[in-house]
Simulated assay, not measured.
Amino acid sequence: MSLLFDSADPIDSPVLAPDGAGDERCRWGQPDHRKPIEIGLVNNIGDAALRATERQFARLLRDGAGERRVRLHCFALRSVPRSAAARHRIDSLYSDIADLGHVRLDGLIVTGAEPRKAALRDEPYWDEFRRLVDWAEANTRSTIWSCLAAHAAVLHLDGIERRRLPRKCSGVYTAVKLQRDPMLDDLPATMRVSHSRLNDLDADKLSSAGYEVLTRAVGAGVDVFRRDGRSRMVFFQGHPEYDPATLQREFLRDVGRYLAGERDDCPEPPCNYFSAETEARLAAFCDRATADRRPDVIAELPPLALRPGLTAALEASAVALFGNWLSLLAAES
């Protein structure tokens, strides 16, 4: 599979197509008239992870597409605070959220934004986000809401409040199927998925409001759930899009913040993520950092190694999940 750019498209967006299709022709030189699945990505993630999130979702759509053609359009909420560099990238390569109505989208993916307020309704992007939820429900066949975006969407749709966790949920967890659903076709009975969040949604409240919990992550609670209406809404509390190194990058960021005095506690390593030897070394490092807290202690951080087999387990489940979503969109087109 190749990541391409369609210069004929009015929106500057990446196109995902089979190898050899860079000129919109198949391998025999004939025009490729297959109708692409049109996907929008509203990327609200923080500046440091902006490009990584683009790559992660593009990779999953590419790998899950099989022989289908997928065109990915990138958007961003204007009300999410940005650095000058991130704003320049968005202005150069993304389309304004107001242009959503000018593109026929089959599906939409919406990421969360870095939280700045204790209450979602107080976030600077809240009003714009609510309009996006309403638009997606009326104009897409299916929308995926990722992590904090899932929390904000259910708050707007049904008034379901998230709850603060005693400590951050971070790690790789075993997800168990609870229902039969096309999104879960051909996935193993238990899957591996990354979670990284400070808040949680109550399964009973979701069920009472008409949501169906599809998978539960052992030790992390609700994983994937859905709400059917004019659009099939799919919600991820986890991060199937994360590449294997994402949790490591987040952990190192949090360690740096602790040593700089920007947080009170030395962060715990992600659960079920690093090798046993690495976990033991990190425990010793945290003791050292707590006893002598200063930024240059980061140089003493030990080498980090992931658990064996983790990468393959994460990628297989995520690709199958997104492949099933694309299949549902293709079947309805």
Rank of each mutant, 00 (worst) to 15 (best):
T53W: 12
A318K: 00
Q179W: 02
N43I: 02
H88P: 00
G20P: 00
D134Y: 11
A58W: 06
Q179G: 03
L93F: 14
R25V: 09
L328F: 00
D202G: 14
E67T: 11
P295M: 05
M233H: 10
A65V: 03
N43D: 05
V297I: 08
S317T: 11
C26I: 03
A209L: 02
I144K: 02
L120T: 03
H73A: 02
L178F: 03
K168P: 10
H239L: 08
L206C: 07
R82H: 08
N272H: 15
P166I: 07
L50K: 02
L329W: 00
L321E: 00
K117N: 07
R51V: 11
R180C: 00
G238T: 07
L16W: 09
A118H: 03
V176T: 12
E332F: 03
R141K: 15
D204I: 13
P303H: 15
A331K: 02
D264F: 07
A21Y: 15
A189T: 10
S196V: 02
D243T: 12
S142N: 06
E128L: 05
G64L: 09
E161H: 15
R104F: 01
L187C: 05
S317D: 07
A312Q: 04
W145I: 11
E54W: 03
L310V: 06
K205F: 04
A175W: 05
P295Y: 06
E114S: 13
K205S: 15
V255Y: 12
L187H: 04
L77F: 09
V255K: 12
R180H: 00
I37A: 05
L252I: 13
R257A: 10
Q237N: 14
D91Q: 14
A280I: 07
G40D: 04
H102E: 09
A299T: 05
Q248W: 11
C169W: 05
A316E: 05
C266E: 04
A299N: 04
L214Y: 14
L50I: 06
R131E: 15
T111Y: 10
P188E: 15
E161Q: 12
A58D: 03
F322E: 01
P81K: 07
R55Q: 13
S208L: 05
R82Q: 08
T111I: 13
H151Y: 15
R27T: 13
E161Y: 08
S92E: 13
F235V: 12
A284C: 06
I37R: 01
E54F: 10
V224N: 08
R78H: 14
E277S: 13
R131H: 09
A313F: 14
L157Y: 11
M233L: 11
E24T: 04
A189G: 11
K205R: 14
V319Y: 01
